[in-house]
Design a protein around this nucleic acid. Structure first.
Lengths: 256, 256
DNA sequence: CGCAGAATTGATACATCTCAAGCTGGGTGG
DNA sequence: CCACCCAGCTTGAGATGTATCAATTCTGCG
């Protein structure tokens, strides 16, 4: 059931994810993070890995969704599309994020891999059964869902009330912060990170056109808030300065 | 602990909510809907009712939130406000909706009553304890949270991609649909309902200014899509026609 | 080398915002 | 009982931010 993807930067290393959950890179953050060793064993029995290429769509809105799972590595997106083609990204899935909705048969959004993606999957039915018997999973899923709801509401503020410049700064700040956290780097001063989204994907997330995204990035560059390093690299010389541009409370500071 | 509100249309009838959950108007939809009779008894022991006047703020963002609870009657809103005053509504709470987040001490948003409001409250700690021992509550809360997340994502599409006219039509459709459901009326043809939101509140929900809201409502009225009945009443002569104006898939039709 | 996808930049159009002036209806106090 | 008042609403005129349409330029890659 494992699909390999030779030509998109996914090394065979992906194959070496062991069946052993205890050395899983997302062990401490994913839906399984609260599980006891014997609960993990039961999860191990039903899990399987799947890989997807960048650009590949895992599920189409309205399709049957017969698995759920966690992002192990890579980035995916959830999108809504209107009949006339207008598209809005409604979720960005990073490692440890959960995909799918227990108790619902059909997907509500398109799910697409943005980068090469590896998922730890469970068939929906067995997972639902296991969840019913394993409060540690249900509790963690509730917690993660509440976090996602908070993030979605934060995003509603951005979509409804922020200017294009503030939107871009907010998006960049999310990736910069994540990068700093991953490397356990300081959350101030200089941060260099890779932006996995194209201008169009950024536009879809921010409710803008790609031209406006491009212009605002140029403007932030011109003002010295960011600098571009090659195609994908973004350098933030002063993270606090970037935060000022987001329009968010900068002192209160318990931002996600 | 019950606060009465004599001058805003709340009759003393509110006081007659019995301690008995079994004849509660939201019994079948709220967080307690899955509970067995003996579980209800334990909930009854710790619950208490609170009433709020229209306009009253239940909690301020950042404040300690030491209770959670369900809306029994009335309408409330969740709002985010930026430092410079820009405001975005991020949630609309109708009867049976749950307020508060177990496991979190401080509120993330302002919660304000829009109409006179009655809540069925639980102190947070005892509720969390009970939830840990009562999977039926946790399961239902997860389900409700997932529904809210879907609604929030639907709203992200509206905020990011819909025109002002589509936004207004979408909001009106929500209330019209709800009215039809409550009265078990048909979901087509003529629907008359009361709009509890002011133009400003609608603007905050839709990411518009109140002037734009007013203009678009006038436009929809001019085009015969709606008619106004007094200050608050809105008549939709043809619900299908209103749906066409929302920009949503009108045939697929499994809309929330 | 040259192609294709991605990004930038320019000129113009237009939807929505902003500022401002009245309107309306229900409540209140003289 | 009426005049006033005020919050909520409507409407207008002009400003502005973002979208749209279009032309290059960049970048990585076969």
């Amino acid at each position: 059931m494992i699909e390999i993807n030779r030509d998109s930067g996914v090394s065979t290393q992906e194959l070496t994810f062991s069946k052993d959950c205890s050395d899983c890179p997302i062990r401490h953050r994913a839906v399984c993070s609260r599980c006891e060793p014997e609960e993990l064993i039961r999860l191990e029995e039903i899990k399987y890995y799947r890989s997807f290429e960048a650009g590949q769509t895992l599920v189409w809105s309205g399709d049957r969704m017969d698995f759920v799972g966690s992002v192990v590595s890579g980035v995916a997106r959830l999108t809504h599309t209107m009949e006339d083609g207008r598209t809005q990204m409604v979720g960005l899935l990073l490692p440890s994020d959960f995909v799918g909705r227990p108790g619902r048969e059909r997907a509500s959004y398109d799910v697409t891999a943005i980068t090469p993606l590896v998922m730890c999957c469970f068939r929906r039915k067995p997972f639902e059964d296991l969840m019913a018997r394993t409060p540690h999973i249900a509790t963690r899923l509730l917690e993660m869902t509440l976090d996602e709801l908070d993030a979605a509401r934060e995003w509603m503020l951005l979509l409804g009330r922020k200017t294009a410049r503030e939107k871009i700064a907010s998006l960049l700040a999310i990736f910069a912060r994540r990068q700093a956290q991953e490397r356990a780097g300081p959350m101030h001063g200089r941060i260099l990170f890779e932006m996995p989204l194209t201008r169009e994907a950024m536009a879809d997330y921010l409710g803008l056109t790609l031209e406006t995204v491009s212009r605002q990035i140029s403007a932030l560059k011109g003002d010295g808030v960011i600098a571009l390093q090659g195609k994908r690299g973004i350098l933030v010389p002063d993270f606090a300065r970037l935060l000022e541009e987001t329009g968010d409370d900068t002192d209160g500071g318990q931002l996600v």
